[in-house]
Simulated assay, not measured.
Amino acid sequence: MEGERAGMKIGINTWAWVAPLTDEELARLAPRIKAWGFDAVELPIQAPGDWDPTVAAELLAGLDLAPAVCAGLLPEHDLLADDEQVVRLTEDFVRHCLRAASQVGADVVAGPLYAPAGRTWLLDADARRATTARLVDRLRPLAAEAAERGVTIALEPLNRFETSLLNTVEQALEVVDGIDGLGLALDTFHLNIEERDLPAAIRTAGDRLAHVQVCGNDRGVPGGDHLDWRAMLAALADIDYAGQLSIESFTAPALAVPMSVWRPLATGPDALAVEGLAFLRGLSAVPSAKNSRS
């Protein structure tokens, strides 16, 4: 597969099985994830203390599984709030995620780390510019701390039903461009809703792309859907992306209501993992536009 030749690792988020993740569940899942043939595992943080980064680091190192960390803000968090106490609480949570990533050996913390998913409000052009500027100001010191730890905060654009601020790659680039410690996390589910040309959006992200989450357009198994996976893999190769492709779906029972999963996305979480990995591994080599020009 072109992506594998470019150095990409294929991983899976433990939300396929459990929420929240715990040390006990990771100890149960990680050996199975490795045995199936994954290179990496994405560890979600829902609340500080759910799992111990030092315990996870030892476990994953022993299995040769590369870690990534993802997180979403809790309802009481909001980096854009007028209330300084809320902003400090949010900064503390992001800093916890950065420490956890550093301790577990992950180089990325991915997610919409500025406001809780579902917070939407109408923005005219002037309000959008002002809000984006506020976000840049409040992310800058957190990004500096991330860079010092060798970690990238990978901001994830979400679809219009989950946020009204950062829906597209171009909007997210207005925040992360020029700031060390900030990058982008792209999720094929959200890209499919908001981008008219998914490979073009990937190429637009360019060297600011730090993490990629993949699933079918219905949030199910990659490959059993209408997305042009070969074109997306070719675009990733064109920008020399060497991070993870992490299967992210929400088949854990605890996530059904918060993630609006009203019907089965796969025959089960194990099937999601095995079938998704087989599809991604089995993609035929795709000549990138860059290679075809040479």
Rank of each mutant, 00 (worst) to 15 (best):
D180Q: 11
A242M: 12
D238K: 04
L255K: 03
L227F: 03
A106L: 13
L191M: 15
G206E: 05
R263I: 05
G7I: 07
P112N: 08
L283M: 03
A40F: 07
D180W: 05
P75N: 11
Y241G: 04
G181C: 06
V212S: 07
V69A: 00
A19V: 13
L73F: 10
D240M: 14
R32M: 14
A231D: 06
A40Y: 01
S292L: 14
W15G: 05
G243W: 01
D238T: 10
P20H: 09
A130W: 00
D218A: 08
E25S: 10
L277N: 04
D228S: 13
T163D: 11
L98C: 08
E156W: 01
L135F: 04
A57N: 14
L43G: 01
P67R: 01
T90M: 00
R281W: 14
V274H: 09
C97N: 00
N159A: 09
L26C: 08
L142E: 04
L245K: 01
G282I: 08
L245T: 02
Q213R: 09
V169S: 11
S292R: 08
L122Q: 12
F38W: 05
G49K: 12
F161C: 11
S284E: 13
D92G: 12
V69P: 10
T120H: 11
A6I: 12
T131G: 12
V169L: 14
L79A: 07
A56P: 09
H226I: 14
W36M: 15
H190G: 08
L158W: 04
P67W: 03
L283A: 01
W262L: 07
V175Q: 07
H226M: 07
R160C: 08
A130K: 12
A237P: 02
V109D: 03
D270F: 05
A271M: 06
G223S: 08
V108E: 07
L165M: 13
L74A: 14
R281M: 05
A81I: 15
D23E: 03
L60R: 00
A30R: 01
D23R: 00
I202A: 02
R119N: 15
S292E: 07
D83L: 10
